[in-house]
């Protein structure tokens, strides 16, 4: 039992990132609305961060707040915003949602890359630095789950996800990389959630509610006509979601 009334723990939450390149309020809202309409449950009350660090010029406080309200009204839940570390506006504390630091992994990647760059540069100026850096970035850890993933549970892996048993209906598995299920896949599986179009889903028995690769998804109705209750893989071929028997 606990000595105090609470426990302070670290926690990682999977969120959406709305990365804005060019700001056009109407366009963003209408396009976002369209995306949500495709899979409403998937986005319902989902946490989202508004990221304006890729924008050339910064938004005004008014514009940002209007965007937060509109995104919330679409059924998402804005939990913070991000901007370029060197372009933090004076009014950053006045925004209704907190300003979040830039993605940690990215910072580490960049500083590591920079360190590597300088090291490699000293050793041999002709080496193609870029390739070295990329290799470091594509090796996140594989997560292995040995117990069934039950209805209502959600598992996310930053690299590949390997499930040795089943994924129940009503459960959700997400991975930045590939998803392997060595049992029946009855819930939802979303691979390449950060946009990796080479990610794939493999399962021993395809009975999924939804499969998705880098945002391209297919529902069980469509899956049943292609491969059902047998081994299958899901991949993107020329931007088309393809399901094949194994």
């Amino acid at each position: 039992m606990l000595d105090s009334g609470f426990r302070l723990k670290g926690s990682v939450v999977t969120t959406f990132l709305l990365e804005i390149q060019t700001f056009s309020f109407e366009e963003i809202v209408s396009q976002l609305q369209e995306k949500i309409a495709q899979v409403p449950q998937f986005f319902s009350q989902a946490p989202i961060i508004i990221d304006v660090s890729k924008m050339e010029s910064l938004l005004s406080l008014k514009e940002l707040e209007a965007l937060v309200l509109s995104v919330n009204r679409l059924g998402l839940s804005v939990i913070g915003w991000r901007c370029h570390a060197e372009k933090i506006p004076e009014w950053h504390a006045d925004v209704m949602v907190p300003l979040l630091p830039a993605s940690k992994t990215r910072q580490i990647a960049i500083s590591e890359a920079a360190a590597l760059e300088s090291r490699v540069a000293k050793a041999d100026p002709d080496v193609v630095i870029k390739t070295v850096v990329e290799e470091r970035l594509v090796s996140p850890q594989t997560k292995v789950i040995t117990k069934p993933i039950r209805s209502g549970q959600q598992v996310y892996a930053e690299g590949d996800l390997v499930v040795l048993t089943q994924v129940s209906a009503g459960a959700e598995v997400l991975a930045d990389g590939n998803i392997h299920v060595y049992g029946a896949l009855r819930g939802r599986a979303l691979a390449g959630v950060k946009g990796d179009i080479n990610a794939r889903i493999f399962c021993q028995s395809m009975e999924a509610e939804l499969v998705s690769i880098a945002g391209n998804f297919m529902l069980s109705d469509a899956l049943q006509d292609i491969v059902w209750k047998e081994g299958a893989q899901v991949l993107l071929v020329d931007d088309n979601l393809t399901v094949e028997p194994l």
Binding site: R150, S151, S168
Partner: peptide, 13 residues
Amino acid sequence: VRDSDRILGILQS
């Protein structure tokens, strides 16, 4: 069956 599956998840977590 679906609800039992949910409860099994709660038992584990």
